[in-house]
């Protein structure tokens, strides 16, 4: 009887486990997507530049999310935005969601002040309305001297 219970438990765990395998953190959907993405400098002291290249012309918005090492969201920045705090700024020759190279500059601030040394995860998301077209993620390290 115990063996049956254990088998049931294992099948339950495997079901949840397999569901969790469907992570799509770097999916490319449709014909508009991030062709490439990179960060420099890494590790950084005060500010970091996240550069990306978009392929296709169907996007209307780019979002930058920064998370701390324990998964707490530190920052969300959306372009276009009227944000005047200069915590994060998109730099581009046209629009940050148009085809070609653009970059986002983050000065290691948040609504709660400067972030300490540590590991942070960034996520760039390309949108068309409420549809997510493409995502790129990576790890950055703040290490002040």
């Amino acid at each position: 009887m115990d063996a049956v219970k254990i088998l049931l438990w294992i099948s339950c765990v495997i079901s949840v486990f397999l569901y969790g395998c469907n992570d799509t953190t770097t999916a490319n959907i449709g014909d508009t997507y991030f062709e490439s993405c990179g960060v420099f400098p890494n590790p950084f002291q005060d500010s970091v530049i996240i550069g990306y290249k978009i392929q296709g012309a169907n996007a209307d918005k780019v979002t930058l999310d920064i998370y701390s090492e324990n998964g707490t969201k530190i920052l969300t920045y959306t372009s276009p935005s009227n944000d005047s705090t200069n915590i994060a700024v998109f730099r581009t020759n046209s629009y940050p969601w148009k085809q070609g190279y653009s970059e986002c500059w983050w000065n290691s601030s948040s609504d709660l002040g400067q972030v300490p040394n540590g590991v942070y995860y960034y996520y760039l998301t390309l949108h068309n309305g409420s549809t997510e077209l493409s995502k790129k993620s990576g790890t950055i390290i703040r290490s002040r001297k």
Partner: peptide
């Protein structure tokens, strides 16, 4: 944390250079 890539800085403000 895995796959943390080391990338040097660059002394230029040009998007093309970046």
């Amino acid at each position: 944390s895995s796959d943390v890539r080391n990338t040097p800085s660059i002394f230029s403000s040009s998007l093309a250079e970046h």
